[in-house]
């Protein structure tokens, strides 16, 4: 949810009251999920530059030159809140999202890893979360044909009310096949492809960024339902698009939806986007 201060800032910049649509867009873009507004201050702790870093922070996946004409891609993401509400789908769509980050950079995704934290499994609810999160990760990876090659797991009482589900995807790409997240040619059309958005997942990032309340059950509809079949079709389609050199830019369509995806493409390319809703 937007803070009062953010709303004031929006009004100052716009010079008027934001419309309902604009409010919805700001709510998504300035959510923790999309803008990292509370965790951003810690990013300096990560090393993101170096001789072998081909692409640092800012796009779907980091790219590191591993020699012999190959770049390794690594992306990592948490799906804590969704997994706490709906462990199977929350974890599965976390995997789906992180694969998407890697393939949208033009890379071939080849391995998955995870880093999981739960309260002690002697408590039934923790055991339920653990079993379903693990099933969500493994079944999604298996269905799209990307193996889970490693992971780590710890239990501590402090995770009783909020499990941590972090997933990692690793891939590779040749430098000449890297696809950037930018739309720089005026007049080009943006094409949206992939699985459909249903009633599930709507405004998911706003929910995912909020502090938990007692309404966990009410939020279940905000967790997207995993669709590995569509993901595999997207992976294959993307490979063909890249091989036929049909892409100028590409942005994954994440929790920020069209607001975020189209905006990021245009901003990176120094262009604008017209959208008819």
């Amino acid at each position: 949810m937007l803070t009062k201060k953010e709303l004031e800032h929006a009004k100052t910049v716009l010079g008027r009251e934001p419309t309902e649509t604009e409010l919805g867009m700001l709510d998504v873009l300035w959510s923790e999920h999309c803008s990292y507004k509370s965790s951003k201050r810690w990013f300096y702790l990560f090393k993101t530059e170096g001789d072998n870093v081909a692409l640092g922070i800012g796009e779907g996946a980091g790219l590191v030159d591993i020699g012999d004409g190959y770049l390794a891609a690594v992306a990592m993401e948490s799906h804590n809140h969704p997994s706490q509400i709906d462990p199977y789908n929350g974890a599965a769509t976390g995997v789906g999202g992180i694969i998407r980050d890697v393939i949208s950079q033009g890379c071939k995704a080849i391995g998955l890893m995870n880093c999981l934290r739960f309260g002690h499994p002697s408590k039934p609810h923790n055991a339920y979360l653990l079993e379903n999160v693990v099933r969500g990760i493994s079944e999604y990876g298996n269905s799209v044909g990307i193996p889970v090659v490693g992971g780590e797991l710890e239990f501590d009482d402090s995770y009783d009310d909020n499990c941590l589900v972090n997933v990692v995807c690793v891939g590779w790409v040749k430098p000449e096949e890297v696809v950037r997240s930018s739309a720089k040619t005026p007049g080009h059309l943006l094409v949206l492809f992939g699985s459909t958005t249903g009633r599930d997942g709507i405004a998911g990032v706003s929910f995912a960024s909020e502090t938990f309340s007692d309404e966990e059950e009410d939020n279940r509809g905000a967790v997207q339902v995993g669709d590995p079949l569509s993901k595999k079709i997207v992976i294959d389609t993307l490979r063909e698009l890249i091989e036929e050199k049909l892409l100028e830019g590409l942005q994954d369509f994440g929790g920020g939806g069209m607001t975020s995806a189209a905006g990021e493409l245009a901003r990176a390319g120094g262009t604008g986007v017209e959208k008819d809703l």
Partner: peptide
């Protein structure tokens, strides 16, 4: 053959 969803 690759059907949609084939992955090997």
């Amino acid at each position: 053959l690759r059907f949609p969803g084939t992955n090997n």
